[in-house]
Design a protein around this nucleic acid. Structure first.
Ligand SMILES: Cc1cc2nc3c(=O)[nH]c(=O)nc-3n(C[C@H](O)[C@H](O)[C@H](O)COP(=O)(O)OP(=O)(O)OC[C@H]3O[C@@H](n4cnc5c(N)ncnc54)[C@H](O)[C@@H]3O)c2cc1C
Length: 545
DNA sequence: ATACCCGTTGCGCGT
DNA sequence: GACGCGCAACGGGTA
């Protein structure tokens, strides 16, 4: 297949756009509603006062039909519905979004498209700067309404602000619905009564206890109106692209297949499997700190994070399904270690990301301790490129790129190693790497956890340092995890699998792995760096108090 | 004001 | 697959 260049691709899309959307359609339009205003209430709001009109539902996250308040709102308003996804050039860039992350998102889009087609509709996919794309679409389709889900990260909030401005000018009324979090974040902010948000889990739990449980999921939307014929039959404008068709990704070949496929149907299936595991006992015994970082088939946690991140799975649905299972048992684990507890961690970090300025960086972030990290490019590269000489670290960084998902404790070990444990490099750098490669890469959660691990916020006991040797050895004495991701070490004897530099040359030759040639020597001495860095931490904490 | 409690997930050693 | 201690002493919340 011929791969179009970025320019060609844009041209094709614009061409298709003009051909498919002749302004001859004669649909009702609420011309009286000139002022665009945001309605931030949840779904039960009365739409009876609004005349039906052509409506765009702009999908960004929430790539699902179930429990989707934004879609429900759009369907209520629509005389004609345009399900739209915009491929924003800001994101569509292999330096920002890695192969697996982008692949996963495209699979979610394809699944959504597939579901929409059952209603004679489909996902309209357009490449371009969102504000301009939306303006074009609204003009061409003579839209009265635009519906999208509330987003909380900085880029999205700025983008959405610009969109609202532009739509106001066009007289298109916008509806912004909460849906990505358990609770509407603005409702939580209001409940703070001007107090700063909780920074500890125990305080957060008290805070939401007084609010009560999150809303129950709403009915899956089933009355999606058909898409107008010209658009439905057009191939060029609408097709969810293959990853090879995207400029910049065409030459990247998938290293190994990632075991996780995107999409709402896979998400629901995966959730069901988790709920049914050991007839629910797996759920009620779940205790996060006791799950194993090295189990791969199946992993010891749900791996619902990439689905939740894309909104292929609703957190409220997951919450209430967990609640249902828990209610049928008398003995169960509790937050923060339980699975519901994990959803509370997410909510907690979302609220912080929403309210704390510059949450994703050190500068200007009132929660983040300023630690004098020192950037060493060769060390950073060794970490990122799985060349540290510590097999567990390198195996983990290989898994990050191949699968786009790591167990929580594996994230701990590599994050600790990069920052306070060994390399003394800023968590901001590590966060960027994670953001790029993780299929569940999430602005708030990623930043919060990096601050946690680096003792920059929330957690301060800096003498608790993960050993890249002792920690994984507890779970995996034979190093099977390492052997799986680092084939070069596959035949290393158990005795040396975590510390191959200790293998005598004779052994190295026998197993065809010469240190410094086939596999790197360790870039630092962990014991030495740990001692030195704890001393640095003592300095930092003394100077501050 | 001050002391004390306790926090999802450390290590290495001793018992 | 248990637990207690030193490590050297964080910090928000509560009494
Ligand atoms: C340095 C670092 C970076 C991280 N970056 C991300 C990220 O970009 N995106 C992300 O989703 N998670 C991130 N996490 C949190 C956590 O590691 C993952 O959410 C979890 O491993 C996902 O696997 P799971 O779905 O099997 O989790 P489960 O244990 O099955 O938990 C269920 C859900 O709860 C939520 N959750 C679980 N753990 C956390 C947590 N610690 N904080 C907030 N929410 C949580 C997730 O949505 C997850 O899908 C990071 C952790 C660390 C230490």
């Amino acid at each position: 297949m011929a791969i179009p260049s970025l320019k060609q691709w844009q041209r094709n899309i614009l061409f298709a756009f003009h051909n498919d959307c002749s302004p001859s359609c004669n649909t009702p339009r609420a011309r009286t509603l000139l002022a665009s205003h945001i309605i931030q209430k949840h779904i039960h709001m009365d739409t009876g006062t609004h005349i039906k009109g052509p409506t765009i539902v702009w999908f960004r996250k929430s790539l699902r039909l179930h429990d989707n308040p934004t879609l429900q709102r759009a369907v209520q308003l629509a005389s004609e519905l345009f399900p739209l996804f915009i491929l924003d050039p800001y994101y569509i860039n292999p330096d920002k979004i890695g192969f697996q992350r982008f692949r996963f998102m495209l699979e979610c889009m394809k699944d959504l498209d597939h579901s929409l087609r059952k209603y004679q509709s489909k996902l309209l996919v357009i490449y371009g700067e969102p504000v301009n794309v939306l303006e074009n679409c609204c003009k061409t389709w003579k839209c009265s309404y635009l519906c999208f889900e509330k987003d909380s990260d900085i880029y999205s909030r700025n983008r959405d602000e610009k969109v609202l401005q532009r739509m106001k000018g066009l007289g298109v009324q916008c509806f912004v619905e909460s849906g990505h979090t358990l609770y509407d974040l603005d409702m939580l902010v209001a409940k703070l009564n001007g107090n700063s948000p909780p920074t500890q889990m125990t305080s957060f739990l008290k805070f939401i206890e007084q609010i009560g449980p999150p809303p129950k999921p709403i009915e899956t939307v089933r009355n999606i109106p058909p898409l107008r014929k010209e658009l439905l039959s057009s191939i060029s404008i609408s097709k969810v692209p293959e990853i090879e068709e995207i400029p910049g990704y065409e030459l990247i070949t998938e290293p190994t297949p990632c075991p996780f496929q995107g999409g709402e149907s896979k998400a629901l299936e995966r959730m069901q499997q988790a709920l049914n595991r050991e007839q629910g006992k797996w759920i009620v015994r779940f205790s996060k700190p006791h799950t194993s970082p090295v189990s791969l088939d199946p992993p010891s946690t749900t791996v619902l994070s990439p689905y939740i991140k894309c909104g292929a799975l609703s957190v409220r649905l997951f919450f209430w399904e967990l609640k249902r299972v828990e209610d049928s048992f008398s003995v169960k684990t509790k937050p923060p270690v339980s699975l519901i507890g994990q959803l509370y961690w997410r909510e907690h970090f979302y609220l912080l990301g929403y309210t704390i300025p510059h949450f994703d960086q050190i500068q200007g972030n009132p929660l983040c301790k300023t630690i004098p990290w020192e950037h060493r490019q060769e060390w950073f590269q060794a970490w990122e490129q799985a060349q540290t000489g510590y097999p567990f670290i390198d195996a983990a960084m290989t898994q990050l790129k191949q699968w786009g998902w790591l167990h929580h404790l594996t994230r701990h070990v590599v994050a600790c190693f990069l920052t306070r444990g060994d390399l003394w490099i800023s968590w901001e750098k590590g966060k960027e790497t994670f953001e790029k490669y993780l299929i569940d890469g999430d602005w708030s959660i990623n930043a919060a956890n990096w601050m946690w691990l680096s003792c920059s916020a929330f957690f301060t006991r800096y003498f608790r340092v993960y050993s890249p040797i002792a920690f994984p050895k507890k779970y995996d004495p034979h190093g099977n995890y390492i052997r799986y991701f680092l084939p070069v070490l596959r035949n290393m004897p158990n005795k040396y699998i975590y510390e191959p530099w200790k293998a005598p040359l004779k052994v190295q030759k026998e197993v065809n792995c010469i240190l410094g040639k086939d596999y790197p020597l360790p870039i630092v001495d962990h014991e030495e760096m740990k001692k030195r860095n704890i001393q640095k931490m003592i300095q930092v904490f003394q100077n501050k108090s």
